[in-house]
Design a protein around this nucleic acid. Sequence first.
DNA 1: GGCAGTAATGAACCGCGGTTAACTGGCGAT
DNA 2: ATCGCCAGTTAACCGCGGTTCATTACTGCC
Lengths: 181, 181
Amino acid sequence: MLKQMMAERGRKVRLAAGEFVFHQGDGDESVYGVERGLLKAFYTQPDGREFIKSIVPAGAFIASLNALVGNGECTFSLAAIEDCELLALPYRELRGAASEDLEIARDLIGLLAELASRKERREYQLLCMSAEERYELFLEESGGNPDWLSQADLAAYLGITPQALSRIKRRRRERKQIRGS
Amino acid sequence: MLKQMMAERGRKVRLAAGEFVFHQGDGDESVYGVERGLLKAFYTQPDGREFIKSIVPAGAFIASLNALVGNGECTFSLAAIEDCELLALPYRELRGAASEDLEIARDLIGLLAELASRKERREYQLLCMSAEERYELFLEESGGNPDWLSQADLAAYLGITPQALSRIKRRRRERKQIRGS
DNA sequence: GGCAGTAATGAACCGCGGTTAACTGGCGAT
DNA sequence: ATCGCCAGTTAACCGCGGTTCATTACTGCC
């Protein structure tokens, strides 16, 4: 089983909030499983702007697919939002184990399908929904405005600036006022 | 090997330009391999607006991941842009074969990783790049403005309206004029 | 030729988000 | 208390994209 293999052969990684697992441009070919904590995977633009690709909670797996499939560089950075414990396993090992063990292969197939499915949802949101709709969806899915994410990070996740997010919140407040009066 | 299995056990599907493979909301759990032709995978909004998720060329594989992983509905429609020949195989069969054959499992893993990697690139473009930058990238990757895609479809792929695409093209023309003078 | 249908373009108006800058409130350090 | 720092908000200006409507160009059809 895959989780078991991660636990047995994986390298334990602990890091404090703010520390990086890998940086954009690195050649990190490991797959990481999050045991505890919270991370953000984000792109940094040449001009310094930051866009958060995904928030990575405990229980999730993450890797830079570009680094895995083509031995390329990581296209994004991975950093801890809270203190974290991870398990790291080189993808080569995982693939190697999957080529000898049908159980592990099955798990890896399920994992990759899950991953692609989540990416498909994110892709849909970015392509079809406005920033305000994405914000509303985020509120629903996370159950109210979370304390574990700064406005700057939330804005970067939505693909806008903190100022634009502030405006969206104000518009919603004002609309609710009108409804409530 | 996976391609071989598709060829042997897959159902041959022929369709003319404009015809649908499946509609958004269907429960189609097949994986499709494109033998010949060109298709578009697209979301249709309640108000009728259309967003193209991906252009699917010959040689590619496509399936609605939401339908595969959770037995859910297809989140998008798949339709032929040109006359097509496809091979269809239920994902259940593919997964079943992969759970008995390490070769097929390895191929399926590679396929899913490839798929996720491409989705990651698209996600990056939608999150970090402007519509104009996405247009320029499309031109580079397809080698000049293609005749096999209407302006309306190209706009839907970029996530904007045909009018906005027209404006982008005009802005580029005018900027080139200035450079060239 | 005349006609309708469609694709692409263009113009006018408006709302949203980026940019820049200023302002507010909370918090720790001294 | 004061200072500085940081997160969040607000405002003013501008450019881009959506919306609507009109125009142009091309095609097939009678």
